[in-house]
Each structure stands twice: as C-alpha cells, then as structure tokens.
Amino acid sequence: MERSLRRFRANKIGLCALGMVGLLAVIAVAFFVLDVLGIPWPMDPDATNLERKLLPPDSVNWLGTDNLGRDVFSRLLNGAYISLTVGFVAVFVSLFIGVTVGAVAGYFGKWVDKLIMRFVDAIMCFPTFFLILTAVALVGPSIFNIIIVIGLVSWTGTARLVRAEFLTLRESAYVQAARALGQRGPKIIFRHMLPNAAAPILVTAVLGVPEAILAEAGLSFLGFGVQPPQATWGNIIADGKTYILDAWWLILFPGLAILIAALSFYLTGDALRQAVETRSERQ
C-alpha cells in the first residue's frame, strides 16, 4: 500500500494526468454549479447572437462562436460536466454489475461459472458501440438512458477480471482458513476476497471512464446522444462538422477537450496499474 503510493508519486506522467483529471473534475463541478445558480460564465452557453456567428477566436469569444453565435468556450466548459458525469456514473453501473457477476462466477466455479462466462462471451460478441447505439435508439436518447446503457453493455471486461482474481483468491490459504472457521459464503466473498481484489478493480474502473466518455461523445456526434441545445463535446463537433472548412475552431477545441480528458484518464489508470502491480516488480 505505502509502496504503491510511493511508486505512484514517482511516476511524473501519472501525477500530471491525475492533476488533469482533478482539474477537469473541478471545472465540471464548478460550471455545473454556476449554471444551476443562473450565473453562466464567461457567457450563457445557450445564448444565441446571430450578429456574431461563426467568428474565429478573439478577445470576446475566446474560442470563437458557432453557427448560431453561441460562445464555444462556454459550451465546452458546460459540456465537461456531461462528459464526466456520463464517464463516472456509467463506470459505477458497469462496476456494480461486473464485480457481482464476476465474483459469483469465480467463487462458485463449476457449472455456475461456465453458465455465466458463456453468457458474458455471448455479450462480448456484439460490437459494443453498435449495441449501445441500438439500445439508445430503442429507449430514446437522454443523459440518464445513455449512462445506463453504457453501463449495461460495458461490464463484461470487469466481470472477467474479477472472476479470474476470484479463481485465484478462492484457493488462497486465508480463504481456506475462513471456511475452516465456519464463515458463510457471502461474508467470505465480500469481506475476505473482494478487498484483496480491490487494486485491479480500481485500475479497470479508472480505465473504464475514458471508454464511457468516448462512447458518449460518439453517440452525441451521431445525434443519438445528449440532445441539443444541451452542449456536449460530441454534439458541438457534430454541429460544427458542416462548417469544417470555414470554422476550424468548432472542431478543433472540442476534439482537443475529448482527447485531453480521455488521455488523462488513460494515463492515470496506467500509472495506477504500474503502482499496484505486484507481479512485475522491477526494483
């Protein structure tokens, strides 16, 4: 634990990435609060101004304006909240399902394991993004639906990981000892096994966030995601693609935002994995 913390601190890239994640989180929360309080800053993200449409970045609109004269910078800040919410909550949903399913399969083994894992295999056969697209098309696009759908289709990796961890943990001496002590099954799963699988679960969780962010951006870009006028990074790009030759700022900045967000989470997750990795100790 302490060693993992020390290793994480020594990883400069990981620290920068974590800082970036923190910054994004602060921005998202701050602008959500400002928006709710009705004091949008620097401008109202939804206010149109047709006299100032499609303007390149200048001193008034720092990142330019779109075809309705809305301020791109304000819309980006506002979109951060959607992206991060979708990212975190969807991962939470998928973790909940994945950990439960994987734990049951790994702990009970035998036919329970076979049945569950074949089901997981079947789900993994579908291309994830099209599964999400179909599901959203069926239930209708809203932030809530998107979160649930992304969570519902992305738990398979976690389930497989947790199952593998549990298959190993099940044979460990302290689980044997807990059984010899007369402890009941659920208690063994949640008290003795789950905490020992926490590190890899945390890593997949962090690596799952950018997947969810990218999925949401993709959905919004295709028009199946969060609906206008609510700004998200995906639909800003979608709106801007018509003007791609005249207004590069409409594509570039939201694209950069997505890139930075996804990259920060990936790098954080990667650094985290290296920090908790006990198998490949290189000291």
């Binding site: 460990s172 001496a173 302290y174 044997q176 000892a177 807990a178 010899a180 002590l181 003795h192 020992n196």
Partner: peptide, 13 residues
C-alpha cells in the same frame, strides 16, 4: 478448529 501450514498466507493481508 484448524491451524494451517503457512501462517503468512492463512491470515488475510
């Protein structure tokens, strides 16, 4: 009650 061979792994870390 049981005690096992490997005390280091029989206790939950």
């Amino acid at each position: 009650a049981y005690i096992f061979q490997e005390p280091s792994t029989s206790l939950n870390p």
